[in-house]
Design a protein around this nucleic acid. Structure first.
Lengths: 211, 211
DNA sequence: TGCAAGTTTTACCAGCTGGTAAAGTTTCTT
DNA sequence: AAGAAACTTTACCAGCTGGTAAAACTTGCA
């Protein structure tokens, strides 16, 4: 039974698509959706615009794929649950460290996401509802169990996550401002380490999770 | 001695300019600089594009003015110093409350600023260096004095501000995501109150500033 | 080898972009 | 009332936008 609609994509095609997606992520991160032209993405990928359109038939199509890659990556790496037997302190510090590593290693992805959400998440909305929301509810439920078990103080689980997200994402999204105020041409590993230890300390002490 | 270059701007002109600036702020917040067309701003302001160009001769011009208004407002309201005799706990909680009020009352301004910084602050850079940086250095210096006086634990003053900024700004910039996860059509006063008390508690306990 | 599928290039376009030029209209001042 | 200054409208445009159509080239495989 040979398939007609869906052929196996060749290795070359996969490689070319990945190349385009990487370029698109960078340009979208810097200019947002409306500010990004197909031409500029193609140039960044080193191919002609028309050839790129062969791989991604429309701009919105391309943008969707970029967003989906980002969210897949994040949700995969940011599962709070997994080892739910671990103690709050180590789980939270691992979570913070993990999110900061994402900001460090995928700053473009973070900015594309930021652009999208600031603009009201017109395209991401469905995906957020179907994928992020359930995970968020599992994670906040776990935090509530911690509270009931007396492992941490009675705090608002939702806002706990909002602050952790904001405090980690800022090192990707607002990097230009932070660099400027730290008088550095770029954020270094030591800055991420300082951010991680500061944030972890603040949060753990703030919710009474130390010791 | 009558002036030729600078005439007194009429009340009508000031009003019209303000009207345009308000509209521009909203559109820039939603679409970013490149994604915003002069036409769409004019439409939002209820006048013709050509007439708007009479008041703001170019798009960049208009954008600069919007940014400047925002920064002026923020720096004016966000001086950490002023009453430097106050105790750390009350100063920090007032600061957090003030910044959250800005997020609540001027969400568009916050988003325009976010767009600009994410894009590398190409236009804001000079202004940040000349206005934000000095204030930042005064504020971090004050925090260092608190540490030396034993009023708070020895923490990293820079990262303290980064976290406070991120944790307050997120309620403007990422409002769509937060609304979605809270299952609310819009953020209410109670949400800002919850955010304020959570953030304040976390930060004050985190740096040992309570009591 | 042949030839079909996959890929790249060339040519093109309608619509929107920021901006100019200038004519027309209203408002202010004397 | 009249003239000037301030304001608004009409007409226009060159360049860029996302996207289409199709010709030309390359590759994998019978």
């Amino acid at each position: 039974m040979t398939e007609k609609t869906t052929r196996k994509p060749s290795a070359a095609r996969i490689q070319q698509e990945a190349r385009i997606l990487r370029a698109a992520e960078e340009v979208f991160a810097q200019k947002g959706f409306s500010g990004t032209s197909m031409d500029s993405v193609a140039e960044a990928a080193g191919i002609s615009k028309q050839n790129m359109i062969y791989y991604f038939s429309s701009k919105e199509n391309l943008y969707r794929r970029v967003l989906q890659n980002i969210l897949d990556l994040w949700l995969e790496k940011m599962s709070f649950i997994e080892d739910s037997s671990a103690e709050p302190a180590e789980m939270i510090s691992a979570y913070i460290r993990g999110k900061l590593e994402l900001s460090r290693d995928y700053p473009f992805a973070s900015r594309v996401f930021a652009h999208e959400v600031i603009n009201g998440a017109p395209i991401l909305k469905e995906y957020l509802i179907s994928h992020l929301q359930p995970q968020f509810e599992r994670d906040t439920a776990l935090v509530r169990r911690w509270i009931e078990a007396g492992k941490i103080d009675p705090i608002d689980p939702e806002h706990l996550f909002f602050v952790i997200w904001a405090g980690t994402q800022t090192y990707a999204d607002f990097a230009p401002q932070i660099q400027l105020l730290l008088n550095k041409p770029a954020l270094e590993q030591s800055d991420f380490d300082a951010a991680a230890s500061f944030l972890t300390q603040i949060v753990l002490r703030g919710i009474g999770a130390e010791h």
